[in-house]
């Protein structure tokens, strides 16, 4: 953790309506690393990505990206900062009325005035990097889930970002595609000299590429460290999560008002059919 921190979170609180999502999160993400955020579904992982990208604002606390305080930035500066960020969405989020080529070209076309030749070279280079140069002319509907994810990945890195977010990059893919995406994440991160933040609950794949990991539960970080450190963690919650045990600190049963046995008895007495 000697490297300079690209993203820093200080005591971040965030709530959605009455529901407290993050209750005081501190984080320091070093330059050049692949950092994974893990935790149960609905645990605020995607929210954290949105906070770091500035699409959501925390109720309190500070978020700094590349030395800039996101809360202090105005709209224009935030947009300028976002040009140096890329994000791979869970559902790929390709524009359905554009071809794969146009999807990847989209950020370039919107932000720069490039000649068609240079644009073509840049886009095909990124598509080649994800192995889909041959699919440049296909529409999103003609791509398989894994291919769509790869096109979206090419689009996320087409501006050569300093910071790449991955929101559940492995979800809903077959094992081969998962392997391909994982390899690409590592390769692109190193080739671009970028920093990657990976939100996932796929423990094995994530640990195979991540340098450092955080486990979130109940709006707080309960464990952090390199994959080896996390695996050896003595936190029960972390062990339950990493081991995938159905019951533990996160209970299997959603809390009910009364005991199951008494509930059975009372409904039997009332003559109800369950």
């Amino acid at each position: 953790m000697a490297a300079e921190a690209l993203v820093e979170l200080e005591n971040v609180h965030f709530s959605r309506g009455p529901h407290l999502v993050l209750a005081g999160v501190d984080m320091r993400i070093p330059q050049g690393a692949i950092v994974s955020l893990m935790g149960a579904s609905g645990g605020g992982k995607t929210t954290m990505l949105n906070l770091m990208a500035g699409t959501l604002a925390p109720q309190s606390g500070r978020i700094r990206v590349a030395g800039q305080d996101l809360q202090a930035l105005d709209f224009e500066d935030l947009y300028r900062l976002r040009r140096r960020m890329g994000m791979l969405f869970q559902h790929s989020a390709l524009f359905t009325d554009f071809s794969a080529f146009e999807n990847v070209a989209f950020p370039l076309r919107r932000h720069f005035r490039l000649s068609e030749g240079i644009l073509r070279k840049l886009v095909l280079m990124k598509l080649e990097a994800v192995g889909l140069r041959g699919a440049a002319g296909l529409m999103p509907a003609e791509l398989s889930g894994g291919m769509a994810r790869r096109v979206a990945l090419a689009r996320a890195v087409v501006m050569d970002p300093m910071l790449i977010f991955y929101d559940e990059p492995f979800t809903g893919l077959d094992p081969i595609s998962v392997g391909i995406i994982a390899t690409l994440i590592r390769r692109l991160n190193d080739a671009l000299g970028a920093t990657s933040i990976l939100v996932s609950h796929d423990v094995q794949e994530t640990f195979s590429i991540a340098d450092y990991g955080y486990i979130l539960a109940g709006g707080k970080i309960i464990a952090e460290g390199s994959p080896e450190v996390l695996r050896a963690s003595d936190s029960e919650l972390a062990r339950q999560f990493l081991g995938g045990q159905p019951d533990g600190p996160v209970p299997f049963h959603y809390p009910a008002r009364d005991n199951y046995a008494t509930a059975l008895m009372s409904s039997a007495a009332a003559g109800e059919v369950i």
Partner: peptide
């Protein structure tokens, strides 16, 4: 459906104002 499939978010992340585009 652009919203449901995160296309609007993606645009926002690419620093393209979805209101304008």
């Amino acid at each position: 459906s652009m919203k449901a499939t995160e296309q609007l978010n993606a645009m926002e992340m690419m620093a393209v104002n979805p209101f304008a585009w």
